[in-house]
């Protein structure tokens, strides 16, 4: 099965690199949900998430030539584009300001109403995080979902850089066993 899917992916990538419209339609139909979920886990805003998803697909189109199949799966490559785009938005001034301008009660109501926003704590890597120890979970939260470097995390958490590295590695190893 693994062999078969790799072959399919190779075909898909080759069509994508020739900017085949049908291949991109397939890509959207197949992966938009997974990528959207990944984006929402970081920005936690459905409308913003849609904007980012659109930007991600445009970037996939533009950058597909730089994708190197030997370095990883297509999805992994796309997920990283999506994560980077989400963290960029998360760290942008306008997003920070809009967060500040939102009063807390409004925010709670919005989350309760939750019409278009799925409960992001229950999906993807966030769900897996629940099974980690608290001090590990916090570090993954900061590193993966907030995009902080290990040096920044050491400063934020007030723990030595070496400890941050060790704990993140330990948490990641655990994550793999959970995923399997």
């Amino acid at each position: 099965m693994g062999n078969n899917s790799t072959h399919t992916e190779m075909e898909l990538v080759s069509l994508l690199k020739s900017r085949d419209s049908n291949a991109f339609t397939y890509l959207y139909d197949h992966y938009s949900g997974a990528l959207y979920s990944g984006i929402l886990q970081i920005v936690e805003d459905a409308e913003l998430g849609s904007d980012i998803l659109q930007e991600v697909f445009i970037n996939i189109w533009r950058k597909i030539d730089t994708y190197e199949p030997s370095r990883g799966r297509l999805y992994t490559w796309m997920l990283n584009i999506a994560r980077n785009a989400s963290i960029d938005v998360l760290r942008s001034k306008s997003f920070q300001n809009s967060k500040k301008n939102q009063s807390i009660p409004d925010n709670v109501d919005m989350l309760k109403a939750g019409s278009s926003l799925p409960d992001t704590d229950r999906i993807g890597i966030r769900k897996l995080l629940e099974q980690l120890k608290t001090d590990h979970r916090v570090l993954i939260e900061l590193a993966y979902f907030k995009g902080y470097t290990q040096e920044e995390i050491a400063e934020i958490e007030g723990i030595p850089l070496g400890t941050v590295k060790t704990r993140i590695r330990a948490a990641l190893t655990q994550l793999r066993t959970i995923i399997k």
Partner: peptide
């Protein structure tokens, strides 16, 4: 896992 946890965009 990601495909299982997919969230349909608008």
């Amino acid at each position: 896992k990601a495909l299982q946890n997919a969230v349909s965009p608008p």
